[in-house]
Amino acid sequence: MLRNLGFRTLRSSPQALMPLRATQRFYHDKVLDHYNNPRNVGKLDAKSQKVGTGLVGAPACGDVMRLQIEVDDKGVISDVKFKTFGCGSAIASSSYMTELVRGMSLEEAGKIKNTTIAKELSLPPVKLHCSMLAEDAIKSAIKDYRSKNPTLGPDAAKGAGAAATAA
């Protein structure tokens, strides 16, 4: 009886053999808030000298994230925009990251660790890689900005000061 049932179930519903669709997850309120009302979504002019663009992806889940920073002459991040295609945690991580880095120096922003984001959003262990992606994105944006402005050196604030003096 049991055997028949098991066999029939297997044969009659191929769907039962397919991987489960995205399982229902219970997101933390903060994740939902950023997901439903993401901050700083959009685009900055990637060609501008003042803008650094970070573009990163997580192949395992098919997420892609673009994070852009605009840096003023004091070496401070004055504007920041992001666009993320991915799960709620990836969107929330990048949204929170944009709030966090606005007003920071490049040096401060470069020191942000994914654990800070994971903690703020109470991400579960399986979603830690989403916060990692946001960390990769800001690092990549800073790197892009610095490669456009090599004279600024590792400390953008000091570099900008020196450039102003030289001019």
Partner: peptide, 19 residues
């Protein structure tokens, strides 16, 4: 290990196209 859960992708051309 490039297809594993912790792998990250920095192939700019591919990422630009995907985005």
């Amino acid at each position: 290990t490039a297809v594993g859960e912790d792998a990250s992708l920095d192939d700019e051309e591919l990422l630009m196209n995907i985005l």
